[in-house]
Design a protein around this nucleic acid. Structure first.
Lengths: 227, 227
DNA sequence: TGATGTGAAGCGGTTCACAGCC
DNA sequence: GGCTGTGAACCGCTTCACATCA
């Protein structure tokens, strides 16, 4: 076990491992080896071991990992042993869609509040969740103990919203606005840019394909970084 | 100019640069230096120059880049000089939300078709776009010249859907199902995992904060990899 | 024997620093 | 003088390979 800094790539994978273990558990296995996990879910066994070893010695040499124990460890490590409140800022198309999405996905996150600046929207509800005036942001965040903010406003307003979030004391932010943001470095910011993702695919389509017909590798493989 | 392989990190950034240039252009600037772009949008000037240099010598030493020219180059490189048809598979909450989102974002992508297996849904419409039977996938993809597929089905069906997509000849896929997928390596697959993203934030929240009160760096900075 | 945990090697991307050119 | 284009240094993550231990 190390006391190094854990990269986000590792924490992303921990979340994936947890889901894989849930599946394994549902199939009734009591123990599992890194090798089996890797084969079954297109992962790399050395990486699984290394990721886990950052947090402790969870395995037994010659045997593998106890499924139930490892699940519990991962839940604890990821902070998924408790419920978290999140809020979504921007009750437009994307904001309401995300509300619906998170509301129905059975995770440890509950949508506690929506915020918007449009007087027409304020006071109405989306799937039972009230839309509050962005002016009351800090107050409601405090009252409802909201820990995570999701930015779903247009690009030009994202930076201002991020500053509001920062001022409120929230430390974890997910940003869907397609714009690079400045943050103070005690705040965790994750940006998901749906436009950039598509345009990057578009680049791929625009490339002249190796048209020599010699389809060298009809090989199936897992790309290094799907995410 | 090099003939190296371009990484996806680079193409993602090209998309960002293009948006930044649009903003710069709207402000009326005729030329721009990598240094100015970097300062204004929290990027790294050396990286901008390197990314661009993969594709040609677009700049003028001592001057910078001509905004209009560089925009045109980037559009061309990213394949954004033409329109693309995309389809969304899975007309559940996420699928319909994405349909709405892409339908209204003014990009070069148009949602041409939705697919589902549920007889209740087939034949109905979402925002003017018909939901087709997944059984007719290959046929409709061919007829409508669809180039990009978006997977918005539950995790357990994602792999099968991906194989259907592969068989249809589509080469670019965006996956929203929270599961690692196998793909043949002539297909570009991008996975956006909204659950993993949140759980990764949760990890951050679960960490004991440097509670010594000595907030050493109230520094504002841009994280290396927001995406 | 068999699978973990891990030092070391490998690899790719980022940043530096400066030569080259307008 | 100023800014691009780029080799080289740097850095961090992944993969290998094996010592270690049940």
């Amino acid at each position: 076990m190390k006391v190094e800094k854990i990269s986000e790539l590792t924490t992303n994978r921990l979340s994936v491992y947890l889901r894989c273990l849930n599946e394994i558990a549902a199939e009734g296995a009591r123990t599992v080896s890194s090798e089996l996990l890797a084969r079954k879910f297109h992962l790399n066994s050395a990486q699984i071991r290394k990721d886990l070893a950052y947090f402790g010695e969870f395995g037994v040499r010659g045997v593998g990992y106890t499924v139930e124990d490892l699940r519990d460890h991962l839940k604890k490590i990821l902070g998924l042993d408790k419920q978290h409140q999140l809020c979504i800022i921007g009750a437009g198309r994307l904001g309401t869609a995300l509300t619906d999405y998170y509301r129905f996905s059975q995770t440890n996150f509950a949508v506690g509040a929506l915020f918007d600046a449009d007087p027409e929207k304020i006071g109405t509800k989306v799937g039972g969740i009230e839309i509050f005036d962005i002016k009351d942001f800090a107050e409601i965040v405090k009252k409802d103990k909201i820990e995570v903010a999701v930015i779903a406003v247009p690009a030009e307003r994202a930076q201002a919203v991020l500053e509001l979030i920062t001022a409120s004391g929230i430390k974890a932010v997910m940003n869907f606005a397609p714009v690079p943001l400045r943050v103070s470095d005690d705040i965790k910011l994750k940006t998901v840019d749906l436009t950039t993702s598509l345009e990057s695919l578009s680049y791929f389509l625009a490339q002249p394909k190796n048209g020599n017909g010699k389809s060298v590798k009809p090989n199936v493989k897992v790309h290094r970084n799907q995410m």
